[in-house]
Design a protein around this nucleic acid. Sequence first.
DNA 1: CCTACCGATCGGTAGG
DNA 2: CCTACCGATCGGTAGG
Lengths: 207, 207
Amino acid sequence: MTEKKKTRIKIRNEEKIRVAALKLFSAYGFHGTTMEKIAELADMSQPNLHNYFKTKADLYEAVLNDILTVWVDPIGSLDVEGDPETELRFYIVKKVEMARKYPEASRIFAGEMLQGAPILMHHLKGPLRMKVRAFSTVIESWIRQGKIRPVDPVHLIFMIWGSTQHYADFMPQIRAVMDVARLNKSDFDAAAESICAIILRGLAPVG
Amino acid sequence: MTEKKKTRIKIRNEEKIRVAALKLFSAYGFHGTTMEKIAELADMSQPNLHNYFKTKADLYEAVLNDILTVWVDPIGSLDVEGDPETELRFYIVKKVEMARKYPEASRIFAGEMLQGAPILMHHLKGPLRMKVRAFSTVIESWIRQGKIRPVDPVHLIFMIWGSTQHYADFMPQIRAVMDVARLNKSDFDAAAESICAIILRGLAPVG
DNA sequence: CCTACCGATCGGTAGG
DNA sequence: CCTACCGATCGGTAGG
């Protein structure tokens, strides 16, 4: 019983650390974040952190792995049997929704890219590349069937990623340009609609 | 004469420092870069750096200002009298060219955004917002004239920025997915062509 | 422009 | 899980 209690506290504390670390790493980067600040935000002493994560680098890696599961994985694949417009719209809307719901995940991922992806390179060359391959296969099939115009599938997916993630990663710029204190759901919806309209129209076959 | 010689050396050294700082700040961020490493790359002693830039923050700001002049300013405005397709194509091609030629500038700018743009916020709310306003005016004029489909000009420019800068900021991901060691000019050209094709077709009026 | 060095911060450990 | 503390690093300065 005492054992069980301890374990529950440990699980809860570890979660608190992960949440605090995600927030700070995403806002200040790896080097701009101190273990002391993470400890504060997680309401613990700094030395105690090391009971849960041996080193700062370990904690950072743990946070990155958390992100991969919520950020990259849930992006389902396109259904080749489906209607291209419906399928791509769903995908784009989902990506914008992710940028809105998990901006910190997006930013920590972006920060990792800016630094050359030292930790995530393995994931990029493995699982992510496979995802793009599956995506490309569907796009190419649609092109062969004349359902969409000929287009390089890889550049298409980069275009979708770039334009959707932009709303999370460049939020200060977007807020400044739009002159709003905060982006609310309707702003994101408008963004998704604009992106969908242009890309779907851009891909629509002649006639 | 001795004075002149000194000045020339000083100018040359300051330039060396700026170049070294841009390279390291863009790769490792502000906190991940040490004055010692900048000094090494600039072939100087670390204390000597402080004769040219009082503090690390001053040097960082100087680098950011350098970037604004080469990264944001030269993006000419759209010519409202011109053909939308020609004008937008020119703009997109130029943006991709900038991502290819000045990836470090793009990355340091992106890093600044990720951290909330503490230093660049003034620029975003001033000059940059004006640029977007000018861009929007032209787009709206084209829409009124039926030259392009109705579209939110602000989301359009975000879409162009997002999809073009992506090739500089997310280069590790792009290289991993495309399975190439380096992106050469033809890759960037293909990217520009894909982006142009989809966006221009997406904006083309009915008929 | 260099040598020498400072004060502060930070990640991590000892020991209980 | 805490107190106390370490070794190392780093930005910046003194003094010449």
